[in-house]
Design a protein around this nucleic acid. Structure first.
Lengths: 315, 315
DNA sequence: AATTTTACTGCACAAACGTTCAGTTCTTTA
DNA sequence: TAAAGAACTGAACGTTTGTGCAGTAAAATT
């Protein structure tokens, strides 16, 4: 009976968080092993049986937005109050980014979309009040072979266009090909050539930002590179990628084998987009947000308090 | 500026509880030492800047009351939802115990009162709607020399009587005298003799229950015994005291030097009181609540969830 | 029914944590 | 202004907590 487990989790949580018992005591009292208690507490947090409520000072939030804007040299910043658990924050950020898009969306605009978990949330939660027939959604990076996670850029492009009632332009290519040669050939294909030309005329774009953690690397998770290769990139100073383009801590782009094989909007073109909305939450994104901002790859940031505090602490 | 510290605490708390950073990371980000972060988190909890919210299942609460009643053989049990931090729970328990007293209070009753922090809260928070002229409040245990904490039985007796608009009977003696001989002499003093006679006719009583921790021992804190003596008592199997009487884990009373010098209502008399309300909260009280219940020293329990869960886990 | 797969357990280790302590700074008081 | 006191700091230590792992039991599959 699952309600039984739930009650046990509640009991353990109460002893730990309200009774401040050690996990060891709880184990003795309730007759579990100590590691089990640790895991039960994790479950209780994940299931939102326990939540951490932290009193706010809203003045501080607005103040932080202003500061972040200055320090990162951005057009606009939205900081969302962080909740316990990253998923909550990611959801909020996705929703907010979507609202932001709707706010700036005007007839005839061409909107680029990258990929990633936050983009997925954004598209899923988007509920525009009207249709945008003459808007065009443009895929900024090639698709991934495995659809195990539904964050593929192709899918996102189509879904976003559908939600908006807009048309879209699909990049008919994988995210990585096997060599620079193949890429250059593909770039000369008329259909693909046209798509890349379109990418130079974007009015706005939505991007996510990945963390420094190599295991979170998009290319690794999609199976394009091994974990060792990902680690090597990290060791060589590549902290993250913006729309697939691997970038340095200082925001600069430098040559590396991955970039040569990448089918995606070029960094210099990204820098030219009038409005680029980046959505990323959690402390682990702080460093990469700073790097991407230094590189000038976005100018509107939607993030959460945790990341904001962390960024301000680091700059 | 103290509001500045408060904001820093909020930031640290958000990073820790919402961003799940380690204290080490926070230290690096915010530029504090790691121990400082640890202390800041403690502060944040104490100042209720963070609170742990745990979802309830109220059915479980009523169920636990029933179970506790059975297992400890009591007349009645009130379990209060526990809050973060012990003080909150103690407050709630004190208030509830007071309400319980008012509920059962009838004209002409003689009410005994022991001492302790919970009793202090109970008296402080009590706000009866009417006066009880012919009720008598009777002091169950001698007074303490130091009034450093206002939990002295004499003071509590007077304060309770005042609140109720009742009369009271004071035990004009210290809690501990220097020898059995002195005690026996005192017990023959007419005034004191009369008081002890009155104690045999109580209709109800309110008691607290101390924890097993020797440092919390009332006698130690009042300066009657050294910490070593307190530890020795603990090692010899005396887990707590009920109204000053040291009792064993199984609830039995056994001879020891402390009991011989004690000026307080005798355990066999306490057992005869029709209604004895014990109020105690927190995991650290679980064991002693069980012992006192086994000894039959109370029959109504006011406690919190944490203690309740712990007791049920142990029996 | 036999085999594979999955899910769960507790051990043992490593990381994270709270706390004591000695040294320091900042207040108070004379 | 000097001396005594209180409050605070981070280094070091011992405890508490999270997690990889090998072993086991239950579930799914053949």
């Amino acid at each position: 009976m699952t309600t039984n487990l739930r009650n046990e989790l509640i009991k353990v949580a109460k002893l730990y968080y309200h009774g401040n018992c050690s996990q060891d005591e709880i184990a003795r009292i309730m007759g579990y092993s100590r590691p089990r208690v640790s895991r039960m507490l994790t479950m209780a947090r994940e299931m939102k049986i326990v939540e951490f409520q932290i009193s706010d000072s809203l003045i501080e939030l607005e103040n932080m937005e202003k500061q972040l804007k200055e320090r990162l040299g951005l057009k606009d910043v939205c900081i969302l109050p962080s909740e316990s658990g990253r998923l909550g924050s990611m959801n909020a950020a996705g929703i907010r980014a979507g609202e932001y898009l709707i706010d700036i969306l005007k007839p005839g605009m061409r909107i680029g979309i990258s990929w990633g978990a936050t983009m997925d949330v954004m598209v899923s939660q988007l509920s525009p009040e009207r249709k945008y027939e003459n808007v065009k959604v443009v895929q900024m990076i090639g698709g991934t072979p495995t659809s195990s996670f539904n964050v593929d850029s192709r899918g996102l492009t189509v879904r976003l266009a559908n939600k908006l009632g807009a048309s879209c332009s699909i990049l008919q290519a994988p995210q990585y090909v096997s060599s620079k040669k193949v890429r250059d050939m593909l770039l000369n294909e008329p259909e693909i050539k046209a798509h890349f030309k379109l990418l130079k005329k974007l009015d706005a774009a939505l991007i996510g930002i990945s963390s420094t953690n190599p295991e979170h690397s998009a290319a690794y998770r999609a199976g394009y590179i091994t974990i060792e290769e990902a680690n090597t990139l990290a060791k060589n100073g590549f902290v993250t990628d913006v729309n697939g383009n691997r970038i340095f801590k200082d925001g600069s782009i430098r040559h590396n084998a991955m970039n040569d094989r990448l089918m995606a909007m070029a960094p210099e073109d990204i820098r030219q987009i009038p409005i680029t909305i980046a959505a990323a939450v959690g402390e682990e994104k702080a460093e990469t947000i700073i790097s991407a901002a230094k590189g000038g790859f976005f100018n509107v940031l939607v993030t959460d308090e945790v990341a904001a505090i962390s960024i301000l602490g680091r700059t």
